[in-house]
C-alpha cells in the first residue's frame, strides 16, 4: 500500500517545524524560503494551513516536462525531479495548478516534494499530528485529491 501525506489544517499551530525540517532535509540549511512545504497563515481567521504537493494522479508537472525529468518513484509514488535531466525550462512550474513546483535559481533546476524517499521530514517533525504519513486511501488524502479534481481540465475524461 502506498502511503501519502495527510494534512489536517485544524491541528496546525503554525510552529513552522515542517518548513525547517524540509529545508534542512533537502538543502542542509534551516531556511523556510527553501522548504517544499509551506504553511499559510490566515490571520483573519486565526488559521494555519500546511500545503505541499499531493503527488496527484494527473501529474501535470510530469506530462508537461519536455525531457522526462519528472518521474514516479515506484517505491513511494512520489513524482521526483531528476536533476541530471532537468533543463530548468520551468514549464512544470506553470503547468502545476497547485503551485507546488518551484524553480531554484541557485541550481538552475526545479524542486518539489519527493516524500523524502518514504520518510517525510515534515511529518516526522510535526509535533501535533497535523501532518502525518499514512496509507494513501485515508479520507484526508482523498479530500486533497478532490482539490485536484476542481482544477482538472480533464475532469470528464474517464481515465
Amino acid at each position: 500500500m502506498l502511503k501519502a501525506l495527510s494534512i489536517l489544517p485544524d491541528k496546525c499551530t503554525g510552529c513552522m517545524q515542517c518548513e525547517l525540517a524540509c529545508s534542512y532535509e533537502h538543502e542542509g540549511v534551516f531556511n523556510p524560503a527553501r522548504s517544499r512545504i509551506r504553511v499559510f497563515h490566515f490571520h483573519d481567521e486565526a488559521r494555519y494551513v500546511p500545503y505541499t504537493c499531493t503527488q496527484c494522479a494527473e501529474a501535470w508537472c510530469q506530462t508537461a516536462c519536455p525531457v522526462e525529468a519528472i518521474q514516479v518513484n515506484p517505491a513511494t509514488g512520489a513524482k521526483e525531479v531528476l536533476d541530471n535531466l532537468c533543463v530548468g525550462c520551468k514549464v512544470c512550474t506553470i503547468a502545476c495548478p497547485f503551485g507546488t513546483v518551484n524553480y531554484n535559481q541557485a541550481t538552475g533546476k526545479v524542486i518539489k516534494c519527493d516524500l523524502c524517499g518514504g520518510d517525510p521530514a515534515c511529518a516526522r517533525y510535526c509535533p501535533t499530528g497535523a501532518i502525518t504519513y499514512v496509507d494513501a486511501d485515508l479520507t484526508a488524502y482523498e479530500r486533497m485529491r478532490t482539490w485536484a479534481a476542481r482544477t482538472d481540465t480533464q475532469a470528464q475524461a474517464t481515465a
Binding site: 509551506r38 503547468a95 495548478p97 503551485g99 507546488t100 524553480y103 481540465t153
Partner: peptide, 15 residues
C-alpha cells in the same frame, strides 16, 4: 518568487 502555478489553478478552477 514562487508558487506561480497557483495562477493557473485559480484561473482554470473558475473559483
Amino acid at each position: 518568487p514562487g508558487h506561480v502555478g497557483v495562477l493557473r489553478g485559480l484561473i482554470q478552477s473558475g473559483a
